[in-house]
């Protein structure tokens, strides 16, 4: 039962489920941060997406519509971040924190009012096979990579994130790109949330995002702000939590394995394993 082969097989089965929501959210972070907007609201946006999907599915029994509404919700939340960061020149970290607090409160409030019971929704119609979303996530890694590095839009976006004034003088609309990137990032993070709710479990429960947004943020940094790097980091983190599920009861306490992504990220940004350097203007407000 515990031959390496069987372990590998078991891990291979859990890993995509662990990795998929992280990859969506991390890709969202990659896009947003390449455009120069730090998004620490991934956690909140995931929760918002997860919740919106379940409510929609609960009311309409239409899973595709549910995912669509989740994406719209993520875009709306990201638009708030973008508006305060861009139009109000607010500190992006502060706004991200505010959105996390706001969204976690709002979803809990709405669970109570919409479902008449706090804590969790009832079971709702969900995707029959959530692996579809895993393939979507993997495809998006390639798509985002191609867009970022092989298209004009991507070059413009990275230019905006690196040196917005240079981009502006080249005729690129910095503010529009930053809005678009942040909002697209929100859409992806919300997809990650929808994967958790209508994809994997078919319910919404307060606290179900359980820190995945912050792990995704860690993956963005650990993956050096590139789609493949971030997705690889997500897979790496997912590998450890999958091993933890499969091999539980080993010598290492569960908490230590769960800590790993966070510790590795600290190590990564401290520069111990190759410096993690963000886009030059990531988090820096742009004013014309």
């Amino acid at each position: 039962m515990s031959t390496p082969w069987l372990i590998a097989l078991a891990v291979a089965k859990v890993l995509p489920k662990k990795a998929t929501p992280l990859i969506f959210a991390a890709l969202g972070g990659v896009i947003s941060e390449n455009g120069g907007i730090v998004n620490i609201a991934l956690e909140g946006i995931m929760a918002g997406g997860a919740f919106a999907a379940v409510v929609t599915s609960y009311r309409t029994h239409d899973v595709v519509l549910a995912i669509f509404v989740a994406v719209l919700t993520g875009m709306a939340l990201a638009a708030v971040l973008a508006y305060f960061a861009l139009a109000q020149s607010a500190d992006q970290i502060v706004v991200g924190m505010a959105i996390n607090i706001l969204t976690l409160g709002m979803t809990a409030y709405l669970v109570s009012t919409v479902f008449g019971q706090p804590g969790a929704s009832p079971e709702v119609p969900g995707l029959r096979n959530e692996a579809v979303l895993t393939w979507v996530a993997l495809a998006l890694v390639v798509v985002v990579h191609v867009i970022l590095y092989r298209t004009r839009i991507g070059i413009h976006l990275r230019a905006v994130g690196e040196e917005p004034r240079a981009a502006a003088t080249a005729g690129i609309n910095v503010v529009a790109y930053r809005y678009a990137a942040t909002i697209a990032g929100g859409a992806l993070a919300a997809l990650g949330g929808a994967y958790l709710s209508v994809g994997e479990t078919h319910i919404y429960s307060d606290g179900m995002v359980a820190g995945r947004g912050f792990i995704a943020l860690a993956a963005v940094i650990f993956g050096k702000w590139t789609p493949f790097g971030a997705a690889g980091a997500c897979a790496f983190f997912a590998l450890f939590s999958s091993l933890q599920i499969v091999l539980q009861g080993g010598a290492v306490p569960a908490q230590f394995l769960e800590m790993l992504p966070y510790l590795l990220t600290i190590v990564a940004i401290a520069g111990f394993i190759g410096r993690a350097r963000p886009p030059a203007s990531d988090g820096v407000p742009y004013e014309r």
């Binding site: 859990v14 489920k17 662990k18 929501p21 969790a120 958790l196 994997e200 479990t201 319910i203 429960s205 307060d206 606290g207 179900m208 359980a210 999958s242 599920i245």
Partner: peptide, 8 residues
């Protein structure tokens, strides 16, 4: 709390 983990 982590519903997805329970499933996995």
């Amino acid at each position: 709390d982590d519903v997805a983990s329970g499933k996995e």
